[in-house]
Simulated assay, not measured.
Amino acid sequence: MKRPNLFYHATKELSQDAFLCYVFSYFNEEYKNSYPKEYEFSNFFIKDIFKRLNINIEPKKLEMKRQHLNIDILLIVNDSIYIIIEDKIHATEGDKQIEKYKEKIFNEYKVNEENIYSLYFKTGDESYRSLENKKSYNNFIYMMREDIISIFENYNGDNIIILDYIENLKSMEEERNNFRNIDLRKEKLSWNEIVGLYNQLDKEFYPLKENGNFPKDSNGEENFFDWEYVSNPSGGFYSYFFCEGLMYEKYHFYPQIEANENYFRLVIKLNPWSKPEEFQELKKQFDLNKLYRCLEILKKYFGNSIEKPKSFRPKSATMTVGVFNDWLVLDDNGHINTKETALNINEKFKILISLKDEFKDLI
């Protein structure tokens, strides 16, 4: 029988704050003999954070503050190093939240800015692009669930609270990664499995972008890939999208994966971009005939691999022009081959971007 796990119930960020402070508390020398495993791990954890932040001093004294200046956790090490921990589970960072905290520390303690560091600690999921956008911060690192598991696997004691935490994170990771075991010829992905797939697609597209194999947009500028949850009256879906794509003055075409527990597809979207006051008027300009003509052009280059959506919605905020039927690459067991699927989508994206002259008299 599987025993109850504290962290199946303690699911809020305040609970995780408390847990991290609990682990850091064992850093102090007084626990070295009475709780050697916890003391050893807490010191390992702090030193690992130092290593990732490139802080080249030996941590000897640790002070913790919770919710001080509205900061989740503030670590003050050796009376001179200030580490802001922004702790998240499913939420994301607010607008320049970490930079605002750094300013508060600077004003409160009059400390040299070079001694203020920040750690974005997240056990939930977040897109690669969202995380990369945070790298503009100085003295900053992030730890995601995989990183955190790899750190906590160094604990070799029998503290049930720490063991529960590790087991809960591994359970979350297994739920996400179970997409690898789904026969997509027979089954649909769950919400958690969709997120796991999108996490992996980030890892597949990243080297393509780094190696210059991810296409630039039709103006020669950088494209990007990102994913997010999209709410709608029918229950919403997770979108994995590729922008900016094939661009015109007021519209752009781009591929987008749409997935929920009922459907899983790659589509080409046509969206207006404009000032808010022009948006409604732009939507009115696009009628059914234009969408049919767009689809005809796409079929000319993609052939039978692209089909008409169930219905055209020219007045909606985003217009689906075509649906691909050959974008997924499955192995003999019906499991998705993420690398080959990413390469397949990448090639379709390149073709789409090459069609700028084809649509110039239509858009």
Rank of each mutant, 00 (worst) to 15 (best):
E63H: 07
Y26R: 10
Y35A: 08
G212I: 04
K135Y: 11
S354P: 06
G235K: 07
E113P: 14
I268F: 13
N159R: 11
L14K: 12
L270E: 08
K360N: 11
L53M: 07
Y206P: 00
N223H: 11
D72S: 00
I166V: 14
S311T: 09
L131D: 08
K250C: 05
E277A: 11
S42Y: 10
F225I: 02
S316C: 08
N289W: 11
N181D: 10
I89V: 07
I46R: 01
N159A: 06
E278R: 14
Y142E: 04
F106I: 04
E126C: 06
L355R: 09
I257H: 01
D17P: 04
N178D: 13
F27W: 11
Y8Q: 12
D202E: 06
K170V: 07
L75S: 04
F225H: 03
F349S: 05
L362H: 10
K186I: 13
L352V: 10
I161V: 14
F140Q: 04
R52M: 13
D164G: 05
E113F: 07
A317K: 12
L352F: 02
V329R: 09
N192V: 05
N260W: 02
D158T: 15
F286W: 14
K310W: 10
I306G: 09
M144D: 13
F140N: 01
I98T: 01
K315A: 12
Y8T: 15
K250T: 13
N223Y: 12
Q67P: 00
N178Y: 02
I141M: 05
K269N: 10
G124F: 09
D158M: 12
K170M: 10
K32I: 10
E146W: 00
W273G: 01
E193M: 05
E261V: 14
I141N: 00
S218D: 02
N115Q: 08
I149H: 05
N260K: 07
N346E: 10
N43H: 11
L295H: 11
N33K: 05
N213H: 12
S231H: 15
I76Y: 01
F214Y: 14
N107C: 01
Y142N: 13
K209L: 09
I49W: 00
A10E: 11
S127F: 00
I85A: 04
S234M: 12
I84W: 01
D361K: 14
K348R: 15
N192I: 01
E114H: 03
D202M: 07
E132S: 15
D332M: 08
Y26M: 10
R145F: 00
D202R: 04
L75I: 05
D183A: 03
K350H: 08
S127K: 06
N337P: 04
L343T: 13
K203N: 15
E347W: 08
N344G: 06
S34F: 03
N260E: 03
E358F: 10
F286Q: 15
W273C: 04
S171I: 13
S311F: 13
M64W: 06
S231Y: 11
I76K: 01
N262G: 08
L14H: 12
